[in-house]
């Protein structure tokens, strides 16, 4: 525990040093030091036609308060981007939405996450159907060390989505086509998924996720390990997918957030600082922290 205290002290010191540097330099700094008090979320956190409604989410790792009182709606057919410096809690928040935080020791999530009139944060909720509804794509491509076909077929098979081999084949083909991977792998469905290139692997993981036909897709920095061409492909893919799915994407690339998302949420040290239409966030940010971040002044 002493460790976390030291860390936060260290962070505060680092923050102070930064502020001082800015004052000495010629940089413009219009507001005073940002404290806990003025970290209320700015912008409209709710949308009328929501798919998931999160209310007062708090996450603790042991004694560490990782995210504080976050209230946010995920709309239907929208892509919402989460941006913010490392360690600000955006991935943690994302993992609340399909209860992936359950797999972490000492992790405690409080608050309400309503989806289809159910609190999916309730311990009595079965995570298996939830994760079938809320799919996830991870930062590092993590195909199973099995064939391309088996990678896609696993989800539909365990959920019993296909009656027979023909249907399963069809699901595999459509999923690969929708992920834009079909043309590249149609001749080597029996080869290990791990033999594909990084970008192909990530699209394979997306295909694996949409094979289960979820309603929401969570993407945790899906392009951070990819080159610009593979990134473009995946962004185009997200654009098409949002016709059917709600997509929540965590990204470190502000350009990516600006390109693909409809709404953007800015996180800072466990707080949700500002939410708004992507255009507004990137052109007229209200909060000082948001402005500093998107103009590249820190982070």
């Amino acid at each position: 525990m002493a460790n976390t205290v030291n860390m936060s002290q260290y962070n505060e010191q680092a923050e102070r040093r930064k502020q001082e540097r800015r004052k000495q330099g010629k940089m413009r700094l219009s507001t005073a030091t940002v404290t806990r008090d003025n970290r209320e979320t700015i912008g409209n956190v709710t949308v009328p036609d929501y798919r998931i409604r999160c209310t007062d989410i708090n996450v603790f790792y042991g004694d560490k308060h990782a995210i504080r009182n976050i209230t946010l709606d995920i709309g239907r057919h929208e892509i919402i981007a989460m941006i913010g410096p490392s360690g600000c809690g955006k991935s943690t928040f994302l993992r609340c939405l399909n209860r992936m935080n359950d797999t972490i020791e000492n992790c405690r999530v409080t608050g309400k996450i309503m989806m289809d009139n159910q609190d999916i944060n309730d311990k009595s909720i079965d995570v298996v159907p939830l994760r079938a509804k809320v799919g996830m794509v991870f930062q590092k491509p993590n195909p199973f060390p099995k064939s391309v076909y088996e990678n896609i077929a696993f989800g539909p098979r365990i959920h019993g989505l296909a009656k027979d081999k023909v249907e399963l084949d069809e699901i595999v083909v459509t999923s690969l086509k929708r992920a834009g991977l079909w043309e590249e792998v149609k001749d080597r469905l029996d080869q290990p998924g791990t033999s594909l290139s990084g970008g192909q692997q990530q699209r394979l993981c997306i295909a694996r996720t949409i094979a289960v036909n979820p309603e929401v897709i969570l993407m945790d920095e899906p392009c951070s390990a990819l080159d610009p061409i593979a990134t473009t492909k995946i962004e185009e893919l997200m654009d098409q997918l949002c016709a059917d799915y709600s997509i929540v994407i965590v990204t470190h690339s502000m350009q990516q957030a600006a390109r693909v998302s409809h709404r953007t949420a800015y996180f800072h040290l466990g707080d949700l600082i500002e939410v708004g239409a992507t255009e507004q966030i990137f052109t007229k940010p209200v909060h000082q922290l948001t402005e500093d971040y998107i103009t590249g002044r820190f982070g």
Binding site: F138, N142, F144, F154, I158
Partner: peptide, 13 residues
């Protein structure tokens, strides 16, 4: 652990 996450992520028990 990424293999476990991948399987859990598509809803495997």
């Amino acid at each position: 652990p990424s293999i476990r996450e991948a399987a859990l992520g598509v809803g495997a028990s």
